[in-house]
């Protein structure tokens, strides 16, 4: 009896936390089908309609911000994955200076984001005025800064995979007559794909979620991401179509993560059964 009560209590605790987490999101999803301009206004829910979804695609500024967010996220995550993977391989073979490079790359991870943002802003001025590189704050600059911001995370995801690799693989490649470089690209690198995918996903979501660096480095030419667009328009008049956008984003995140996890579990199970001794 006591044990059963304890189990129920634990379920209740989890349920309360889960409901608190999802209540705001559910509210937005429900109201994305409402004709009401404001949530919880005295007039209630209004009519059920898809009009906010239509409205979303007519809001040019919001659409542009969404495309900017995705474009900057994809470009910077690809760059970060590329640079991060090569760096991880280089660091793996490095004897001297490895610690120093790791330490410096960690600075971006542990530093307060606002200080990083200020640093990037001052750097853009320095590059433009002192070095005379015609760099303007905007999409390109945001891609560069987001790449710098996310590369350490890719290194952090890829490095452990390198350490787990069987060193004999490399020897085997050489024994079979491949040159070191070729062995590296055809034997070692393919083993890192799992780490690269995780690193890419991490870099991509970090870029999508970024606000502080973007807000100080987007320039004054009206470049916005979803985060800065919403923040800037909140005080004025935020388009209720943002509820439709939130719903779409939430559904995509949910589907991607659940599918990804199902695949991962299946793979883990397959590996488990493959590694079982014969006859069992």
């Amino acid at each position: 009896m006591n044990k059963k009560l304890w189990l129920v209590l634990r379920w209740v605790f989890l349920a309360v936390v889960l409901i608190s987490i999802y209540l705001p999101i559910m509210l937005i999803i429900v109201y994305s089908f409402s004709s009401e301009r404001n949530i919880g206004s005295d007039s209630g829910f209004g009519d059920f309609t898809f009009s906010l979804y239509g409205r979303l695609f007519q809001n040019d500024l919001l659409m542009e911000a969404t495309l900017n967010t995705l474009g900057i996220g994809l470009a910077s995550a690809l760059l970060a994955t590329f640079i991060g993977t090569f760096t991880a391989v280089g660091l793996y073979y490095m004897r001297k200076g490895k610690k120093a490079v790791n330490l410096v790359s960690q600075v971006t991870v542990v530093n307060a984001e606002i200080v990083t943002a200020v640093g990037f802003l001052l750097l853009s001025i320095f590059l433009r005025d002192v070095i005379q590189i015609p760099i303007e704050k905007g999409v390109l600059w945001l891609i560069i800064t987001h790449t710098v911001l996310t590369t350490p995370y890719v290194i952090l995801t890829v490095s452990p995979r390198l350490n787990q690799l069987n060193p004999n693989l490399y020897e085997a490649g050489l024994d079979l007559g491949a040159r070191p470089m070729r062995t590296l690209f055809t034997v070692i690198m393919p083993q890192l794909i799992g780490g690269m995918v995780s690193g890419f996903a991490l870099a991509f979501t970090l870029s999508l979620d970024d606000f502080v660096v973007t807000n100080l480095n987007k320039g004054t030419s009206g470049v916005n991401t979803i985060s800065t667009y919403v923040y800037d328009n909140l005080k004025r008049n935020l388009d209720p179509a943002i509820r439709a956008l939130s719903t779409i984003i939430f559904v995509i995140v949910l589907v991607v993560l659940i599918v990804f996890n199902i695949i991962k579990n299946k793979k883990a199970k397959a590996e488990q059964s493959a590694s079982k001794p014969l006859g069992k």
């Binding site: 509210l27 109201y31 979620d209 985060s227 984003i249 995140v253």
Partner: peptide
């Protein structure tokens, strides 16, 4: 899961609640 959704969007959702 919420960690993967844009935090500004989550905060304005919370704001409505």
């Amino acid at each position: 899961i919420p960690m993967w959704m844009n935090f500004v969007l989550r905060i304005i959702a919370l704001r409505s609640l």
